[in-house]
């Protein structure tokens, strides 16, 4: 007789292998970040630091531009996330609740915006930002990052708004509320999980972004953390200890934020992804 469930195949070894593959680089990053240069440059490498030290972290936090880059990253990510959220809430509501001429074309344009390879527009974007005097400014990067965050935010929120019963809104409209009032007082409060997913998604995307920052941020007044990490590597010499410590510093906040929010984030993303 065939059994109804299957438990015979080796799940646990496969899971263990999976965890090793995904986590080993982080483990090695952490171990290396506590080693001093002489120990990093030894063969064979040691699995546990012989003389663990905070030197690399102190270097990164107090003797480099990292704190300033951290501040720049926070301002740029927060600014871009806030603008993307405001625009996406309005647009998604329009798409989710109204039929109008040109709607399909508008959706197609947003999909193009989402899929467009950013590398293809760095050159004209550089020229345009230069012309507007926005090169090497917070506002310039904040605007550029909207290209990355706005389209997917719109799709994530469309699918969320669709899940909220129209009847709730109709009652309020009968009572004389405006459409904007309905959105802000009824639909939006019910969509908080979707809004949080959009915030996390937009923040993480802009926090991680590299190539726009590389092209449009010219000095330490606007450079972001990913650029700071790349700057530890020069053509002739790389301070691997500092690089690993800076990598840990950059990974930890994102990992914590993500793990705390992961249920929402993954749920919102798969909803947006399969719809988009």
């Amino acid at each position: 007789m065939a059994s109804r469930t299957r438990s015979t195949w080796p799940i646990y070894p496969a899971v263990a292998l999976l965890v090793v593959i995904t986590m080993f680089p982080f483990l090695w990053m952490l171990i290396s970040s506590f080693k001093q240069l002489s120990e990093l440059y030894t063969v064979p490498p040691t699995w546990i630091p012989v003389a663990p030290s905070w030197t690399n972290y102190l270097n990164v936090l107090f003797e480099s531009n990292v704190p300033r880059y951290f501040l720049n990253s926070v301002i740029i990510s927060a600014g871009s996330t806030a603008i993307a959220l405001a625009l996406a809430i309005l647009a998604s509501y329009g798409f989710a609740r109204f039929k109008f001429r040109g709607r399909t074309a508008a959706v197609a344009l947003i999909i193009v915006g989402q899929l467009l390879p950013t590398a293809a527009i760095i050159v004209p974007l550089y020229v345009v930002l230069n012309w507007l005097g926005l090169l090497n400014t917070y506002l310039g990067l904040i605007l550029a990052y909207l290209i990355l965050t706005l389209p997917l935010s719109v799709f994530m929120l469309i699918s969320y708004f669709r899940g909220i019963p129209v009847e709730l809104e109709e009652a309020a409209i009968v009572d004389g509320a405006s459409r904007l009032g309905v959105l802000l007082r009824i639909t939006l409060p019910l969509s908080m999980p979707g809004v949080v997913a959009v915030i996390v998604y937009a923040f993480v995307t802009t926090w991680n972004e590299f190539i726009f920052a590389l092209c449009f941020a010219l000095d330490s007044s606007t450079k972001t953390l990913p650029i700071g990490l790349a700057e530890f590597t020069t053509e002739f010499n790389t301070d691997w200890g500092a690089v690993m410590a800076a990598s840990v510093v950059m990974t930890v906040p994102i990992a914590i934020l993500f793990l705390a929010m992961q249920r929402l984030f993954v749920g919102g993303l798969t909803a947006g992804g399969t719809k988009g």
């Binding site: 999976l18 965890v19 995904t22 986590m23 680089p25 982080f26 090695w28 990053m29 993480v204 926090w207 991680n208 590299f210 953390l225 990913p226 990490l229 790349a230 530890f232 590597t233 690089v243 690993m244 990598s247 950059m250 990974t251 994102i254 990992a255 993500f258 793990l259 992961q262 993954v266």
Partner: peptide, 17 residues
């Protein structure tokens, strides 16, 4: 949750590590 971490970290961190 754990296996998604490589995807959420910055690309530059993956590159340097």
């Amino acid at each position: 949750a754990l296996i998604v971490v490589p995807w959420v970290i910055p690309g530059i961190v993956a590159a340097t590590t």
